[in-house]
Simulated scan of single mutants.
Amino acid sequence: MTMNDARSSQDPTTAHPRPDFPDQNQEHPGWTGPMDPPPDHGEDSYRGSGLLEGAKTVLTGGDSGIGRAVALAFAREGADVLFTHLPEEADEARETVRLVEDAGRTAIAFPCDIREEERCREVVGRAVNEFGRIDVLVNNAAYQMSQPDGIGAITTEQFDRVVRTNLYAMFWLCKLAAPHIPSGGSIINTTSVQAYKPSPHLLDYAMTKGAIVTFTQGLAQMLVEKGIRVNAVAPGPVWTPLIPATLPDTAEFGKQAPMGRPAQPAEMAPAYVFLASRHASFITAEVMNATGGTPLP
């Protein structure tokens, strides 16, 4: 189903590809091109209606997957987008830039590794220099690596990378960006179904996603008096390059969801648009679950 068909009735369990998928594995960080089926970011379907007209936005991990879908949707809703990506993801980032610019908005691709505080400081500084303010900060970048052999196989190096990418960077970016977010602005963090139903082979990743829920709820109470809303989106399984790059078996990915399939990135983007928009003006400290039917607290 495309966004153009949204008013018509269609079974959501069959609206997008279902497993079994071809077996496919990639080196981290993974690439969109080789994926089969190809991810849908909303290129041919998302239609904007001015919900974010003139908004200045910062997005981490915007080169592919959910990040690319959010960048595309924000741009088609009228927002300018500065997004981060790893230096090795430059080719992926160029496609996101193209999509944003084709929507008539400004796109700034910022190559960096947000595990370092100084890089986060540079991201915020560049956004303020270019835009003058930050209306919406989307903390989306994350790292995971499956370890089916359990906690004993999680090295300190892996643990450090997961925590610094998923938590430290979010903390730093929120701390640095908050003084530049005007009243009416918002922060949106990406947590996960893993926060509530952790998979043993993703123990360290799931731990950080649980922490993001707590961080979101606490920061929301801290910033509400300044008129800044803080919310999160909790995706279930989503078909992105992170999957073939970090999981050993992709054939049945998403089959565990009640809908029997993974989400496409395009199905996540509307949640971020809603939370960033004026339609969510009375919503803060909330987690929007987009899990394909997995019940969460």
Results as ranks from 00 to 15, higher is better:
G293Y: 03
A153D: 14
A178K: 05
D135H: 09
D149Y: 00
G152D: 12
A234I: 10
G236R: 03
V138A: 03
M170E: 09
E130Y: 01
P182W: 04
K226M: 06
A169T: 05
I108M: 06
A232H: 00
G48K: 02
L176M: 14
K175T: 08
P295T: 12
H201L: 04
P265R: 03
L275M: 04
A280C: 01
C112K: 11
Y272M: 02
R47L: 13
A276G: 00
N166T: 09
I283G: 00
F74P: 05
V123D: 02
L223K: 01
P148C: 01
V70T: 14
T156G: 10
S186R: 06
T191P: 05
S192H: 08
M207H: 08
K226A: 11
H85F: 12
D149F: 00
T294C: 00
R261P: 02
D135M: 07
P265F: 02
A93P: 06
T190D: 02
A177P: 12
A276W: 00
V70I: 15
F83C: 06
N140E: 11
W239L: 07
S199C: 02
E77R: 01
V97H: 00
D102I: 02
L296H: 00
I228P: 00
P297D: 05
E157W: 04
P295W: 08
P182F: 06
E101I: 05
W172Q: 04
Q217K: 13
N166C: 09
T165E: 09
R119N: 14
F274T: 04
D113Q: 11
V193L: 14
N129W: 04
M3K: 07
L176D: 12
T246H: 03
A153V: 08
G67Y: 03
D149T: 04
S192D: 05
P38I: 09
R115I: 10
R164Q: 14
A75C: 09
E157L: 09
S183W: 02
A107S: 13
I228R: 01
K226R: 15
W239A: 10
E43A: 12
T294R: 01
E27R: 15
A142W: 08
T14Y: 12
N140K: 09
A263M: 07
Q26A: 14
A245H: 08
D63A: 15
L167K: 01
G104P: 08
N189D: 06
A107G: 10
C112F: 11
S49R: 15
V224F: 01
A211D: 03
G78V: 09
R47T: 14
I228M: 03
I134K: 03
G152Y: 07
G185W: 07
K209W: 05
L173S: 04
A142I: 08
V233C: 01
R121G: 12
V213M: 06
Y196T: 10
A276I: 00
R7C: 11
G78S: 05
T84W: 02
L167T: 10
R261H: 06
E117H: 13
I188K: 02
M3N: 12
R261T: 06
S281N: 13
N289Y: 13
I134D: 09
A266S: 13
D149A: 13
M207W: 08
M222Y: 13
A90S: 15
T14L: 13
L275E: 02
T191L: 07
R229D: 00
H201E: 15
Y46W: 15
L242H: 06
D160N: 12
G236N: 05
V128L: 06
S192F: 08
A245M: 10
L72M: 11
